[in-house]
Design a protein around this nucleic acid. Structure first.
Lengths: 334, 334
DNA sequence: CTGAAAGCGCTAACAT
DNA sequence: ATGTTAGCGCTTTCAG
């Protein structure tokens, strides 16, 4: 049989209201009663029933988060930041992973909606904005991690234009003049944004700096290696003297190819990656990278959820957080 | 104002009981009513209140999972398997990440307990078995991913003895005779188990095979590189002709060191890693690795939870799943 | 096959 | 400061 407030109250010889107050650390209950109640709680192994609590109070303690890929450090770091922020209000973050399956994702959206989660942080696999909107109508704040703005929802994300600018500016500052931009497919908003930033940096420079785009079908290590090989087929004087890879994975592949051919990094060609994954610091030549402000994004998302709850789901915001350069040997060593 | 069964019933012109039946796809409700109810649901944007459902029915749809590290492919793959299994019963898996903080972990244990989760799958950061036991007393099945057996809980995990045996056997089968076992700290149960397996394989061989343990303080790429350098300091004829690394990270570090010194892999020294992370297939020489049956572990864990729920929390089980060898060039290429 | 009504365990308002 | 009590929205008998 389930132990409830009632059983605790009976054992402690007080009323359920008092037990509730003690359990929730509320009001000023006489110390004697507090002790008696706590004893009874221990003795009976009482665990508060959150369903009843949520039903009655109309408020949940969980912030829902849905991500496409559990192994992507970007999302897990966002989750960490979100968890930190949620803890401040005594809430928790629960994560569902869609594994890029629309159906699984929909199940999570539904589940969090039914749980009346405080809000939803979602990096969508497909376009579920409409479905999401259905729940948003019910008052659940939803924050998108998507770069594509949907006016119905708020969003937080990295400033990709700035990221592109920072990367190229660093290459220019370290004396590079023929820069290769490696990434794709170029229909991705993140990438076009970074390209804009890259061109911004070049426009702001006096010297003749060229930017060449190496478009790739994906952003994996293997593809990076292919790009590296392709670059090495060209005569040295027509090669780029710097490669700006849109993921660290690409950068690692490029580095492998250059290593295999004994091309010096950064002596002959310098390399920048993007994301600053753990591996970036442990490659044969440690990789300069652009670090995305992931924890901050997560923290911000939770703050926006709470703000929307208070403000009665008022205005939508679209916030962008600044990435930073993490310089390492792949651009700096002589 | 919140839309409930009542509002839907009013609009559809039926009773709440009927709406409940339709929403849950239960019983045989007249088609006409089904349609009218569904229309009303759409029109009002009704979302079932899970708190009320859970409270009344006394049963939740969520399986809780607590992991120490969101970036560890081991755990995320276990989560995937668990999610697959849960889906079969129309349940979902929600993951909390403790980031190796006991406090965060405790919060999640508590939250899942209060939510009356169907059960808990937990890879513990510290020893929270006692706290866990408190909730288990309340009937919530808890499955440990820990290798250390606690008789109060069931557990599922990889068979590490077998993993160690498979790896060394493969090296012996491919003609190696001086095997290095790289990993540490050796107080970890996983590692001592694997070492037992490694020795098993050697005992079962006629030829004179030696096993040398290279103990490491951790299992990172950098440490792997250090070990690689150390091995290379020895004259070639006294070096191991094969290195069995306890993580792919270690193996990658070793490979980097050998690459840098132009030592042929697997020609001079062959390498096996452990875990078969994504990176294993994309190293300069693709890495042979031991793949842990992570999805299966997750699936099994969920099955055990459901079994315990039905069997009234009867007996505890301790199940072990067989890892497999993933052969690649680092041991096979001539 | 559908409608009416009793609670699930808790919180919060009110009474004492 | 503590006790009493009315629901929160739903599921689930039990009647009709």
């Amino acid at each position: 049989m389930e132990v409830g407030l009632r059983e605790v109250a009976a054992l402690a010889g007080v009323s359920v209201g008092t037990v509730s107050n003690v359990v929730n650390g509320r009001a000023t209950v006489a110390q004697e009663y507090v002790d008696r109640v706590n004893d009874a709680v221990m003795q009976l192994g009482f665990v508060r029933n959150d369903a009843a609590r949520a039903l009655r109070s109309g408020t949940s303690r969980t912030v829902g988060m849905i991500i496409p890929d559990g192994n992507n450090p970007f999302y897990t770091s966002v989750a960490l930041g979100a968890s930190d922020a949620a803890t401040l209000n005594n809430n928790i973050v629960l994560v569902g992973t869609s594994h890029d399956e629309a159906e699984r994702e929909a199940r999570y959206v539904e589940a969090f909606g039914e749980q009346r989660a405080r809000g939803l942080i979602i990096a969508s696999a497909g376009n579920i904005h409409d479905r999401l909107h259905q729940f948003a109508r019910g008052g659940m704040p939803s924050i998108l991690l998507d770069p594509d703005v949907d006016e119905r929802f708020s969003s937080v994300g990295p400033d990709d234009v700035l990221g592109g600018r920072i990367g190229v500016q660093h290459l220019i500052d370290t004396g590079r003049r023929r820069i290769g931009f490696v990434g794709g497919p170029m229909r991705l908003r993140v990438l076009t944004d970074r390209l804009v930033g890259a061109n911004d940096a070049i426009s702001g420079t006096n010297g003749a700096v060229t930017l060449e785009v190496f478009e790739t079908p994906d952003r994996t290590v293997l593809t990076g290696r292919t790009i590296g090989e392709r670059v090495l087929k060209r005569p040295p004087e027509t090669r780029p003297d710097a490669l700006f890879a849109m993921t660290d994975l690409l950068a690692i592949g490029i580095l492998q190819a250059l290593d295999a051919h004994r091309v010096a990094v950064p002596g002959d060609i310098s390399i920048i990656g993007y994301d600053d994954i753990d591996f970036a610091s442990t490659t044969s030549v440690p990789l300069t990278s652009i670090r995305q402000p992931m924890e901050i994004i997560g923290r911000k998302a939770v703050e926006m959820i709470e703000a929307q709850r208070e403000g009665g789901s008022k205005k939508r915001e679209h916030i962008t957080i600044e990435p930073t350069l993490v310089p390492r040997d792949s651009t700096l060593r002589p």
